[in-house]
C-alpha cells in the first residue's frame, strides 16, 4: 500500500511540477484573498494583528478547495481516473498518495502565505514550533477530507458547487482548532496551544483512517 501511495503521490506532484497550475494560479489567488481581507478589515493594524490567525486559515481553506478540485480534475481529464482504477493499485494507497500530494502542495502554500500574512498584517511570527506543527496536522486533516469528498464529487456534473458544500462544514473543527493554536502561538490568546494540536491530530487520524478504508468503494463508483 505504501509503495502504491508513493507512486500516486509522485505522479500528482510531477504533474503539478510540469503544469505549475498550483504555483501560477492557486498561490496568487490565495495572496489576493489575503489582500482582500486586509481591505475588508484594515487599515487598523491592531485589528488585523488580532485577526491574523483566522484570516490565514480561512485563506488556506479556500485554497485547499481549489487544490482538491485540481487534484480530481487531473483524474477526470482524458479519463485518467479509469487508468488509475485499472492499474491494480491498492485503493487505500491511492487515497494516501493523493492526499499526501495535496497535503505537500498545501504545506508549501502555507509557508508562503504565513510569511506574506506576517508582512501584510504586521504580525511577527512567534512560536514557530507550534505554528509549523499545527500546519502539518491541520493540513493532514484537510487533505484527507478533501481527497475523500473530491472523489465523492468527482464523477458528478455539479462537482464545482457540491464539493464546497460538503467540504467546508466537515472541516469546521480544523478551522477552529488551527486558528486557536495559531492565536495561542502568536500570543493572541492564553494557552491551549498543545491541546488544539491534539484535536487536530485526532481529526487527521480519524479521517485518514476512514478515507483509507472507504476509498475503494468510492473509486469503483465514480
Amino acid at each position: 500500500m505504501w509503495r502504491d501511495a508513493l507512486l500516486v503521490a509522485g505522479k500528482d506532484l510531477r504533474v503539478e511540477w510540469r503544469s505549475r497550475v498550483g504555483l501560477n494560479q492557486v498561490v496568487p489567488f490565495a495572496l489576493a484573498v489575503l489582500l482582500l481581507f486586509g481591505l475588508a478589515l484594515g487599515p487598523d493594524a491592531a485589528r488585523l494583528r488580532a485577526a491574523t490567525s483566522g484570516l490565514f486559515w480561512v485563506t488556506v481553506l479556500l485554497a485547499a478547495l481549489l487544490g482538491v478540485q485540481r487534484s480530481f480534475a487531473l483524474e477526470s481529464a482524458d479519463r485518467a481516473g479509469d487508468g488509475l482504477r485499472l492499474s491494480g493499485l491498492d485503493a487505500g494507497g491511492i487515497f494516501v498518495g493523493k492526499a499526501a500530494a495535496l497535503g505537500f502542495q498545501l504545506l508549501v502554500l502555507e509557508a508562503v502565505l504565513a510569511l506574506v500574512a506576517a508582512l501584510l498584517y504586521g504580525t511577527p511570527l512567534e512560536g514557530v514550533g507550534v505554528l509549523a506543527a499545527s500546519c502539518v496536522l491541520a493540513t493532514a486533516g484537510l487533505a484527507a477530507v478533501g481527497t475523500f469528498y473530491g472523489a465523492l464529487a468527482a464523477g458528478t456534473r455539479v462537482r464545482e458547487t457540491l464539493l464546497p458544500l460538503l467540504f467546508f462544514p466537515v472541516v469546521a473543527p480544523v478551522l477552529l482548532a488551527a486558528t486557536k493554536a495559531w492565536s495561542a502561538a502568536l500570543g493572541r490568546s492564553g494557552g491551549g496551544g498543545v491541546g488544539w494540536l491534539a484535536l487536530l491530530a485526532v481529526f487527521a487520524a480519524a479521517y485518514v483512517a476512514i478515507g483509507t478504508v472507504a476509498f475503494g468503494p468510492l473509486l469503483e463508483d465514480s
Partner: peptide, 8 residues
Amino acid sequence: IAALVAFI
C-alpha cells in the same frame, strides 16, 4: 458513506 463521514 457520506452520511457516516458527516456523522463522525
